[in-house]
Design a protein around this nucleic acid. Structure first.
Lengths: 335, 335
DNA sequence: GCCGTTTTCTAAAACGTTTTAGAATATACA
DNA sequence: TGTATATTCTAAAACGTTTTAGAAAACGGC
């Protein structure tokens, strides 16, 4: 590997001069600068990021901690879209992205230790069990951290507008005349709590008291559970006219159950999802859902994290809410 | 940040001794070693990977180049599953994963340059336009490279068994009595060519000549195109009894078109996909498809890449074919 | 021709490790 | 007891940068 020393020798100058020339210091004469740059290119010189990092204490490397219990981390459309957007923005700003290791073998380092070891300058955390001690250690650490869809006191977090999203969805459903609305919500999490709360409140605004048996729980993306629960909802004496699902994917289970019973969507019963992933708009009928703005979430997360890294003094921690958008689709009938 | 120097001072030994103690050199007395390790832990010491990399020329960092034209890189279930598996294996072997940057701003580095700069020890390439000059530069470089689903002379590649997979699928379809089988295949690529070739050959083994109008082309995952083409296939005087789709997701377009025409799957017409993503087994009816073994592909890619990195002499480049598995589902009727 | 500036360059230290070569001490053997 | 051999430790160089402090040269003004 050709280093600055080689260039210095070839150009008959000192290493310092090479460094300054390549970094456009005003110190160096224009002629010499160009000559050095030229021979650097000719010799195929590339800077060594390790050496640079060692000296400057800047790695321009961000970490991304992203693993869910189900080991389906990257398969989850919603989160992988966010990551993709985060990556694009970070790279445009000159940062690389490294996964925070979670499967290390011997001498197991904690998340935090691993981040320090690798010199990651900031971490974005998503889709993880935020209450694991290891996660807490990282979140409580002095490293710049941005969390997604989970708020921590004194830290920056980007959250999808679950309250507003669910409000819009319920308002749409109610405005189409539905009053008997069932909600199969996800397992307990801050996201779920926000949506459930917003569901109840908005229904109340429409003067509707939701019967207890209309509100059920199923794991996100678990079609088998939504299918089973849908059967039970359909068997109620007072059957709902519309079923809200935890997310678009699990809505498939609901849809299957409905069709299995020989009912038509939306003629006999209405269905809505949440997320607005590609799938939802390809189903027949198009699913009524809330599109979460994954691009904005990812981009904002990157911008905020980089702000924390580059201006630790002035960057105030904050909770940023990213609005979603109703995709009306055709799965909710006008009564 | 506490460094070896601090530990050395505290323990009253030299830096060299600290280094050796922490790295379990036989040089250091057992007592001293434990004492040093203990105070290192107490002081919250963490090694500095940049310094270590600078000295040892080993970063234990692998790159992953993964971006498709549609910018939907991480959304593609098949590839993101592979990545996930690659990541798990690499991390177990002590390597971290960094994305090879493709959105750098000024002084744009090529993929190759970026890999060198970051000291990535090996690169896995997937889901990219392999013929871009920039990709070629990387593939032809001296860096250890493993490609996925694309074979390059003299390089290691992991490919899904498209020939065998399509053979199994066609054999299954034919064994259920189908002879009029249409195939909507993906856009031209080595993967597509393998599948199309295998399709024709296997049909031939069953003594069937496939009419030209049965073989159509649609972009992968493009439901609008498969939908349109399915309409056309259904309008043929001699309509096929089974339609093979480019992949599971795009099969949705096909299914929608069929239902729109008032036909039932599989009673009136049969459908099959390819990939075996979660979605396929959640559709009603369960989709007949080939499950590509993304876990094995990712794991093998990591193992081979690490082999190339650690044993450059003895690691021969090779093409490794990973078998898939037929998921019969219920979308192909027995005639 | 002298002095003060400006411009252009360099020496050398530093970042935090690893590692080589060798020093110092302890141990074994005769 | 003296010598050969292990054992345990250290000094110092090296990895490839960046940066500080200052040297040398060129320039202007008088």
């Amino acid at each position: 590997m050709v280093s600055m020393k080689d260039i210095a020798k070839k150009c008959g100058v000192s290493i310092a001069t090479v460094s300054k020339a390549l970094n456009d210091y005003s110190d160096i004469g224009a002629g010499k600068r160009e000559e050095i740059k030229k021979t650097a290119k000719e010799m195929g010189y590339l800077p060594n990021s390790s050496a640079r990092a060692l000296k400057t204490k800047r790695t321009y490397n961000l970490g991304i901690l992203f693993v869910d219990e189900a080991r389906s981390g990257l398969k989850h459309d919603y989160f992988s879209s966010i990551i993709e957007s985060f990556k694009v923005t970070a790279e445009e700003r000159g940062y690389d992205i490294t996964f925070v290791n979670c499967n290390m073998p011997k001498q197991r380092q904690s998340y935090y230790e691993h981040c320090r070891y690798r010199g990651l300058e900031g971490i974005v955390i998503a889709c993880i069990d935020f209450y694991k001690p290891e996660a807490q250690e990282l979140i409580r650490s002095s490293l710049p951290v941005v969390t997604i869809d989970h708020v921590f006191d004194g830290r920056t977090s980007i959250v999808s507008d679950n309250v507003g999203g669910m409000r819009d969805l319920v308002q749409y459903v109610c405005s189409r005349g539905h009053r008997k609305v069932a909600y199969i919500h996800g397992l307990d999490s801050s996201t779920t709590r926000a949506r459930v709360g917003s569901f109840y409140r908005t229904m109340e605004e429409f003067g509707v008291e939701v019967p207890e048996e209309y509100v059920r729980e199923a794991a996100y993306r678990d079609t088998a559970m939504t299918e089973q629960i849908t059967y039970e909802l359909l068997s109620l004496r007072d059957r709902p006219t519309c079923i809200l699902c935890p997310d678009d994917f699990s809505a498939l289970g609901c849809i299957n159950a409905i069709r299995e019973r020989g009912l038509k969507i939306p003629d006999d019963i209405s269905v809505a999802g949440y997320d607005g992933i590609t799938l939802s708009q390809v189903l027949e009928p198009k699913l009524t859902t809330i599109r979460q703005d994954t691009v904005a979430i990812g981009r904002t997360a990157a911008e905020e994290l980089i702000r924390l890294v580059e201006h630790p003094k002035t960057a105030l921690p904050d909770t940023i809410v990213v609005k979603g958008k109703l995709l009306p689709g055709y799965s909710v009938k006008k009564l």
